[in-house]
């Protein structure tokens, strides 16, 4: 397995280089270094000399990808691309274009993202499994039919609707939780209730449908028939046999998203005023801060690769037949 993991990590290097290159190209197709300078200096009364000074101070005065005037390897290394990218591979994110330390900001902002994402994931899984098992248990009844109809309706609705609807109902109308905001420590709890509820409800349609399919697939298998033939009750069959076997695809699906929980949610954080990494990325894009954008895309890619690797490893843990070589 070690050899497999090392090989996968080595594969990650060209992927990350490609992602970084793609981010760079896409960003600079839309923004020139002059645009970045102007966005930092403001539009008013900014002289061309001030823009040049800013670019020099922030390393944007060099050619973007290829330096014709440099010698040898310098043609590739004495460029904005190289200078802004190479340190990323050592996880040194450097400073944002407005001067703040990105690594420090990421360290600060990942906790609020996790504070929402982790309970949303755990509660969401529990709720989805409960509903899916309930529907599977009552399969063929009106609960199954209307449950599926409800799931389809729920998954058809935009997540923005859940956010605004949740804020309207629970906060504005019923005054049960703060409409938005965040705090540190235990004081954060009251701010997390609404985003977690919204996160769980917005995912319950798709989640329940998926889990229901998994459970129903398992229910049709021979071992379930055997269990029933032994005289086991339906709920014992479901909880002791079906649930355990259906957990294999379930678990692997969950493991892949675990690392990405750090990245937060763009819309949820923005609407609930949560200072997480999702809103950090949005800020970076809106401010044309290339340093933040490239760092967050890089971090997202790394976490995704780790997620896929963990998924592969988790297969071996939950299914003894799988071997990684």
């Amino acid at each position: 397995m070690t050899a497999y993991i090392v090989r996968r990590l080595l594969y990650a290097i060209p992927i990350l280089i490609g992602v970084n290159l793609l981010t760079f190209v896409l960003f600079f197709v839309i923004n020139t270094p002059d645009d970045i300078a102007r966005s930092q200096l403001g539009d008013r009364r900014v002289t061309a000399a001030a823009i040049d000074t800013w670019k020099r101070a922030h390393g944007y005065q060099k050619p973007l990808i290829y330096n014709e005037n440099a010698q040898g390897l310098g043609k590739l290394t004495d460029t904005v691309l190289f200078n802004k990218s190479v340190r990323l591979f050592a996880f040194d994110f450097g400073r944002s274009d407005s001067g703040r330390d990105i690594g420090y900001d990421i360290g600060q902002r990942m906790w609020p993202s996790l504070a929402i994402a982790v309970p949303t994931l755990i509660v969401g899984i529990l709720v989805n499994i409960t509903f899916a098992l309930l529907i599977a248990l009552f399969r063929g009844t009106y609960i199954d039919f209307w449950g599926v109809v409800l799931c389809v309706i729920l998954l058809s609705v935009s997540s923005l609707f859940y956010i605004i609807g949740g804020q309207y109902l629970l906060s504005k109308l019923f005054h049960l939780v703060p409409i938005s905001g965040y705090d540190t420590g235990i004081n954060a709890t009251k701010f997390l209730i609404l985003p977690v509820i919204v996160g769980v409800i917005s995912g319950v349609g798709s989640g329940t449908r998926w889990y229901r399919t998994l459970f129903l697939e398992e229910i049709g298998k021979d071992y379930v028939r055997t269990a029933r033939a032994k005289g086991l009750s339906e709920h014992v069959v479901l909880f002791r046999h079906v649930l355990r076997n259906a957990l294999i695809p379930l678990l692997t699906g969950i493991v892949v998203v675990l690392p990405l929980l750090f990245m937060g949610s763009l819309i949820v954080e923005s609407f609930f005023g949560v200072p997480g990494l999702g809103s950090y990325t949005i800020d970076g894009i809106q401010r044309q801060d290339f340093a933040i954008v490239r760092s967050m895309v890089f971090l997202g890619s790394v976490l995704y690769i780790i997620g896929l690797l963990l998924t592969d490893i988790s297969y071996t843990l939950v299914d003894p037949r799988v071997r990684l070589r």
Partner: peptide, 18 residues
């Protein structure tokens, strides 16, 4: 001063007196 990026929560908090 609280960071409030969206206008809807900002307006509702004003109406609630916050």
């Amino acid at each position: 001063y609280s960071l409030e990026k969206e206008s809807i929560p900002r307006w509702n908090k004003f109406l609630q007196g916050f």
